[in-house]
Amino acid sequence: MSVPAQLGKLLNWKWGAVLGALLAVSLVAVAGDEDEGKKSSRVPKPHVVIEKGDKCVEDEAFMKRNHMKLLMHQRDETVHKGIRTTKYSLQNCIDCHASRKNNSVLGSNDNFCQGCHSYVAVKIDCFECHSSKPKPMAARVVAAGNGAVVAADYSGVNK
């Protein structure tokens, strides 16, 4: 029998019922459980030490979804236009969120960036080039616009 005719044979109601049943079972299995931590076959949710939490830049849900977009936009502003505002800059993230233990946002799955990224298996490209460590205090200088040299003002991010 030719291939199209063989396929035609499959598309009758009996096979449709079997297919539908399989789909239903899979959907139930996937959507079924709420308490994911209990299932041993599942990957445990990351326990990430945030260091400085609460809404500092934007609220948590927004940041989870959009931090990459903020960073992508900021990097072009800084590199191409020399705009060095701190709010959405990668350096600002690192300065606040670097772990107290190893002074970095990488190193273990407890660290801020690595924890979530390793859980969702999204490779971070930033730290091929960027340092994962916060800037030392003495080096945190910005121009105040009139040429005066001042230390960076991070008062807005303090708890």
Binding site: G82, R84, Q91, I94, E128, C129, H130, S131, A143, V149
Partner: peptide, 25 residues
């Protein structure tokens, strides 16, 4: 790396005329 001067394997680099310092006066 210097936080102001990221550099990494596989990309090309050169003198930046210290743009990170120049931008800060």
């Amino acid at each position: 790396q210097n936080s102001d001067l990221p550099r990494g394997k596989g990309v090309v680099e050169s003198c930046t005329m210290c743009a990170h310092r120049v931008d800060r006066g």
